[in-house]
Structures are given as structure tokens and as C-alpha cells.
């Protein structure tokens, strides 16, 4: 396939996914820059782009990730975004939710926002980008086995952060508390429910 055709095919196939990827990590304006820059890199390195679409997409994510990381501007935006995301009561896509769901979402967002970037990225890649281990490994630049460990640890930290989120002020009054509030049975039940 001629280079122009090849890039156009990649564009058609993966543009939306890369744009989603970027929008999940920075604001809309910066996300557009990330997409353009990502495909520009793909154009310059066309022979490096895997032929298999299942690998091409994670490869593009890996580039997008680097573009994001290299941009101070988008980093600042990303921080702002994550501040927004962790703000209590922010419903996704502005759709009104039953109060419980809103609280629940806020709690999950907050817990996610408290994880290290690397852990967040591992979870986002498999949960939002729907990548499997091999794809996520490609996107994060590590082996599949290393990715399995990383994901495992990220999930564990997420569970821990959720338990910690359950121990916010005001819950201490709810009867006897067992040690660390992150270890209370009520917290455990909620987290357990979440992850089961």
C-alpha cells in the first residue's frame, strides 16, 4: 500500500479512538492537537506502525501518550481536568443520575484521581480504551507479563483508594469503628460490592 493510502486508512480506522483517548486525558482543545501530532508521528514512522489493527491502535495510543506527556501545556490542562473529575457531584456527560449514582461516581472518580498517573493509565487503557493485556502493554511500552502485574497492582491500589474514600468525615459516627476506617466492615462491603 502506498504511504498516503496507508495513513488515510489508519486515520479512518483509528481517528475516533485516538480522539477519545486524548479527550479522556486532557481538554477538548488540547486533545485535537494531540490527535494531529499523533498522526503526524505515524506518518513519519509509517514503517513502524504495526500492520495488525489490534496492534496499530495501541501503538497510536503509545504515541499519543508521549505527545501528552511532552506537552507542558496539556499536562497543566490534564491536572485541571483531573481536578474537575474529582470534584464531588460531577455527573458524567451531564446526564442527571439518581443521587446514589452521583455519589457513587464521585467516589470512584475521586479514588481514581488519587492513584499515581501510571496506575490510572493502566486502568484507563483496559477499562476505557477496552484494550486487552497485550494491547495495554504495547500502549505502555512494557511486556504483557509486566502489564499483568501493573494492572494487578493498579486494581489493588484502586480498591485501597475506594476504601479510603469510604472513610471520609462523618462516617466515624456510624457505630463502632474497626481500626483504620479504610478497614471498616461497611467500607469493605461497599468496596467489595464495587469490585465483585
Amino acid at each position: 500500500m502506498e504511504p498516503g493510502e496507508r495513513l488515510t486508512a489508519l486515520w479512518r480506522e483509528h481517528h475516533a479512538a485516538v480522539l477519545r483517548y486524548a479527550c479522556r486525558r486532557t481538554d477538548a482543545e488540547a486533545a485535537q492537537d494531540v490527535v494531529s501530532e499523533t498522526f503526524m508521528v505515524a506518518w513519519r514512522r509509517l514503517p513502524d506502525v504495526p500492520d495488525d489493527p489490534a496492534q496499530a491502535r495501541p501503538w497510536l495510543y503509545a504515541v499519543a501518550r508521549r505527545v501528552l506527556a511532552n506537552s507542558d501545556r496539556s499536562q497543566r490542562r490534564s491536572q485541571r481536568l483531573s481536578a474537575q473529575l474529582t470534584a464531588v457531584g460531577l455527573g458524567a456527560q451531564g446526564v442527571p443520575d439518581p443521587a446514589d449514582d452521583v455519589t457513587e461516581r464521585a467516589r470512584v472518580r475521586q479514588a481514581l484521581g488519587r492513584l499515581a498517573e501510571r496506575d490510572q493509565e493502566a486502568l484507563r487503557l483496559v477499562c476505557w480504551e477496552d484494550l486487552d493485556l497485550a494491547g495495554a502493554a504495547l500502549a505502555m511500552g512494557c511486556s504483557r507479563a509486566a502489564m499483568a502485574v501493573r494492572l494487578h497492582r493498579a486494581r489493588r491500589r484502586m480498591a485501597s483508594a475506594l476504601r479510603a474514600a469510604d472513610s471520609g468525615p462523618g462516617e466515624a459516627a456510624d457505630g463502632p469503628v474497626a481500626g483504620h476506617e479504610s478497614h471498616t466492615s461497611s467500607a469493605g462491603r461497599v468496596a467489595g460490592h464495587e469490585w465483585a
Binding site: 475516533a16 477519545r20 479527550c23 458524567a92 481514581l112 477499562c127 476505557w128 484502586m158 469490585w195
Partner: peptide, 17 residues
């Protein structure tokens, strides 16, 4: 399990764009 937890807080739906 992780997906069912995190899907509701995905800021961009999977079919967007």
C-alpha cells in the same frame, strides 16, 4: 470487574466521534 466499576466514570463514551 474493573470495567464495570470504571465505565460509569468514563468521561467520553466508547462510541463518541
Amino acid at each position: 470487574r474493573a470495567r464495570s466499576l470504571l465505565a460509569p466514570v468514563n468521561p467520553v463514551p466508547g462510541d463518541a466521534f
